[in-house]
């Protein structure tokens, strides 16, 4: 077979004509994605009023972000909260995903398609709808969840899961994990199905236990996918906003315990902070820039670990 899909160019039909096929996509992408992304980094050195930022002020936005006691307290608090949010997703969502993918590949498992459909179902819901729905279920007055826990004898008094600073952030993280667990499940599933059956047969002949097969064969071969899942989780969590917006509003109630980078960015750069109510877009751009840098570092670190050659 000749190499596939590569068509010869007819004489007289200049190669440059291809530019007309390429240009529309390139133009929209450049002006509404690439340029705003990079330009927002530049804007972190500017200030102004309204939408326009025209006055260059060097690092002043960053200095405000870190030196203004009110702003910097929030920034670091939210930085920490976002890491907790991320940790819960890694531990709950991604470990469950790995578990489910493993269970779904069991030989002769009946109803595998049904389980798959169910596990992925919440990922098709709007985060806002998920958030609102769980907010109602967790509501201490109605408290469908409190009722169940009470009936099972696991809990006495109704508890305000979203009202206590000690539980609110974890609760929200769990709701978000509930929604997204289908993603890692399907990715791990695809990875497991790509592993050659010969390996499992060989292992079976050697009398390897399920645990051994998991730790010695599956997990090492899944490493690139674990890397991708970790990157996706990281990027999504550090940009998360909707779930907190739905369940606790943009102020990250109670007492900023559920405030994360996404809600902070929204308050500072887009909507304006209480009590001033006027957004400081320059500081907002600075927050976005720092998130951008953090994501770049995080993604390259995870990629480095996931793709590291085994030295043996």
């Amino acid at each position: 077979m000749p190499s596939i899909g590569q068509r010869r160019n007819r004489p007289g039909n200049s190669n440059w004509n291809w530019i007309f096929y390429l240009l529309p996509a390139l133009v929209v992408y450049t002006f509404f994605m690439a340029y705003p992304l990079l330009n927002s980094l530049r804007l972190s050195f500017f200030t102004g009023s309204g939408f326009e930022l025209s006055r260059f002020i060097g690092f002043d936005n960053y200095i405000r972000l870190f030196k203004d006691p009110q702003i910097s307290e929030r920034y670091w608090g939210d930085f920490k909260n976002t890491w907790i949010f991320f940790a819960v997703h890694m531990i709950v969502q991604n470990v469950l995903g790995l578990l489910f993918a493993n269970l779904l590949t069991r030989k002769g498992l009946k109803g595998s398609d049904f389980y798959r459909t169910v596990i992925f179902l919440p990922a098709t819901l709007s985060i806002l709808v998920t958030g609102y729905l769980w907010k109602l279920i967790l509501n201490p007055q109605w408290g469908a969840l409190n009722l169940i826990l009470g009936k099972l004898g696991l809990m006495g008094e109704p508890f305000a899961w979203l009202g206590e600073p000690s539980t609110a952030l974890i609760t929200i993280s769990l709701v978000s994990s509930w929604q997204w667990v289908g993603m890692p499940t399907m990715m791990f599933l695809a990875g497991l199905q790509n592993i050659s059956g010969d390996l499992f047969e060989a292992a079976a002949i050697d009398g390897a236990s399920r645990g051994t097969v998991f730790w010695k064969i599956k997990l090492p071969l899944l490493r690139p996918i674990i890397g991708i899942v970790a990157i996706l989780t990281f990027v999504n969590n550090f940009n998360a906003f909707d779930v907190v917006f739905a369940m606790e509003n943009v102020n990250g109630a109670p007492q900023f315990s559920t405030d994360i980078m996404g809600t902070f960015f929204y308050r500072v750069g887009i909507a304006g902070q209480h009590p001033v109510g006027i957004p400081d877009r320059g500081v907002g751009a600075a927050v976005a820039t720092l998130t951008f840098i953090l994501l770049a570092i995080g993604v390259s670190l995870i990629m480095g670990i996931a793709n590291r050659e085994d030295r043996r």
């Binding site: 994605m33 992304l37 804007l43 940009n239 750069g269 907002g284 976005a288």
Partner: peptide
């Protein structure tokens, strides 16, 4: 890259 990072400029 999540496009949200460019929100400030997109608004403009």
């Amino acid at each position: 890259f999540p496009i949200r990072i460019g929100s400030i400029n997109l608004l403009q």
